[in-house]
Simulated scan of single mutants.
Amino acid sequence: MPEEDLVELKFRLYDGSDIGPFRYSPTSTVAMLKERIVTEWPKEKKIAPKAANDVKLISAGKILENNKTVGQCRVPFGELPRGVITMHVVVQPSLAKAKTEKKVDEAPKKNVCSCSIL
């Protein structure tokens, strides 16, 4: 693939720091980008994804779907040729895990009524 066909992306983290930039083929999928983000995630960060499913990518205000390609996610207007595209990264633990943790934290509370009849 010619060098000029590659798309240059960087990933903006919650604290304003970046991962990348890296060059990708327009046929690379969002799922592939997420795998790379997990691999390249800075070790010193307090919040870190454990798996690619914990990562949400946002570009041009839209959450990107795993099966979409980089070429499909490019915004046709406003992107300069050879410019670096910034995608925002949100770490969100998977829903199943969050529900399990919530159930453990929400132990049933006993209702105690201290009533006295005079």
Score class of each variant (00 low, 15 high):
Met1Asn: 12
Pro2Trp: 11
Leu6Ala: 08
Glu8Val: 08
Leu9Phe: 04
Lys10Thr: 07
Arg12Thr: 13
Arg12Pro: 04
Arg12Asp: 05
Asp15Glu: 10
Ser17Lys: 12
Ser17Thr: 10
Ile19Gln: 01
Pro21Asn: 01
Arg23Tyr: 05
Tyr24Glu: 05
Pro26Val: 04
Thr27Asp: 07
Val30Met: 00
Val30Asp: 00
Ala31Arg: 11
Arg36Lys: 09
Lys45Gly: 07
Ile47Asn: 09
Pro49Thr: 00
Lys50Met: 02
Lys50Glu: 02
Asp54Gln: 00
Val55His: 02
Leu57Ser: 00
Ile58Gly: 08
Ala60His: 11
Ala60Met: 06
Gly61Met: 03
Lys62Trp: 13
Leu64Lys: 01
Glu65Pro: 15
Thr69Lys: 01
Val70Gly: 01
Gly71Glu: 03
Cys73Glu: 01
Val75Gln: 05
Val75Ser: 12
Val75Leu: 05
Pro76Val: 15
Pro76Asp: 14
Arg82Val: 06
Arg82Lys: 08
Gly83Met: 02
Val84Gly: 02
Val91Phe: 03
Ser94Met: 09
Leu95Trp: 06
Leu95Tyr: 07
Ala96Gln: 12
Lys97Met: 05
Thr100Arg: 11
Lys102Ala: 13
Lys102Arg: 15
Asp105Ala: 11
Asp105Gln: 14
Glu106Asp: 14
Pro108Val: 13
Pro108Met: 05
Lys109Trp: 02
Lys109Pro: 05
Lys109Asn: 09
Asn111Ala: 08
Val112Met: 14
Val112Phe: 06
Cys113Tyr: 14
Cys115Arg: 11
Cys115Phe: 10
Ile117Met: 12
Leu118Gln: 08
